[in-house]
Computed example of a mutant assay.
Amino acid sequence: MEQAFREQSEELELLNRILRHDVRNDLNIILGWAESLEETATGEEEEKLERIRSAGQRAVELTRVARDIAEAISGEEEPELHPVPLDDVLTTEVKNRTAAFDDAAIELH
Rank of each mutant, 00 (worst) to 15 (best):
Met1Pro: 12
Met1Ile: 08
Met1Thr: 12
Glu2Met: 03
Glu2Leu: 04
Gln3Ser: 12
Gln3Met: 10
Ala4Asp: 11
Glu7Lys: 06
Gln8Glu: 15
Ser9Leu: 11
Ser9Gln: 14
Glu10Asn: 12
Glu10Phe: 08
Glu10Arg: 11
Glu11His: 11
Glu11Ile: 10
Glu11Thr: 13
Leu14Lys: 12
Leu14Asp: 08
Leu14Gln: 12
Leu14Arg: 14
Leu15Pro: 01
Asn16Pro: 04
Asn16Ala: 15
Asn16Trp: 05
Arg20Asn: 11
His21Pro: 00
His21Asp: 06
Asp22Ala: 01
Asp22Pro: 00
Val23His: 01
Arg24Thr: 08
Arg24Lys: 12
Asn25Tyr: 14
Asn25Gln: 15
Asn25Glu: 14
Asp26Gly: 09
Asp26Arg: 13
Leu27Asp: 07
Asn28Tyr: 07
Ile30Ser: 07
Ile30Cys: 12
Gly32Asp: 15
Gly32Cys: 12
Glu35His: 10
Glu35Gly: 15
Leu37Pro: 02
Glu38Phe: 05
Thr40Ser: 10
Glu44Ile: 11
Glu44Lys: 15
Glu45Trp: 03
Glu45Ala: 11
Glu47Ser: 09
Glu47Cys: 02
Glu47Ile: 11
Glu47Val: 13
Lys48Glu: 13
Leu49Pro: 03
Arg51Phe: 06
Arg51His: 11
Ile52Cys: 06
Arg53Glu: 09
Arg53Thr: 10
Arg53Cys: 04
Ser54Tyr: 10
Ser54Lys: 14
Gly56Trp: 08
Gln57Thr: 13
Gln57Ala: 14
Arg58Asn: 10
Ala59Asp: 02
Val60Gln: 11
Val60Glu: 09
Glu61Leu: 10
Leu62Tyr: 10
Arg64Glu: 12
Arg64Ile: 03
Ala66His: 08
Ala66Tyr: 06
Asp68Met: 10
Ile69Phe: 10
Ile69Tyr: 09
Ala72Lys: 08
Ala72Phe: 07
Ile73Glu: 08
Ser74Leu: 04
Ser74Trp: 03
Gly75Ile: 05
Gly75His: 05
Glu77Met: 01
Glu77Gly: 00
Glu78Thr: 08
Glu80Trp: 02
Glu80Ile: 09
Leu81Tyr: 07
His82Tyr: 07
His82Gln: 09
Pro83Arg: 00
Val84His: 03
Val84Glu: 05
Val84Ser: 00
Leu86His: 02
Leu86Ser: 06
Asp87Tyr: 00
Asp87Arg: 01
Asp88Lys: 06
Asp88Gly: 00
Asp88His: 05
Asp88Trp: 04
Thr91Ala: 09
Thr92Ala: 09
Lys95Gly: 02
Arg97Gly: 00
Ala99Phe: 06
Ala100Trp: 00
Phe101Ile: 03
Phe101Leu: 01
Ala104Gly: 00
Ala105Asn: 01
Ala105Gly: 00
Glu107Gln: 06
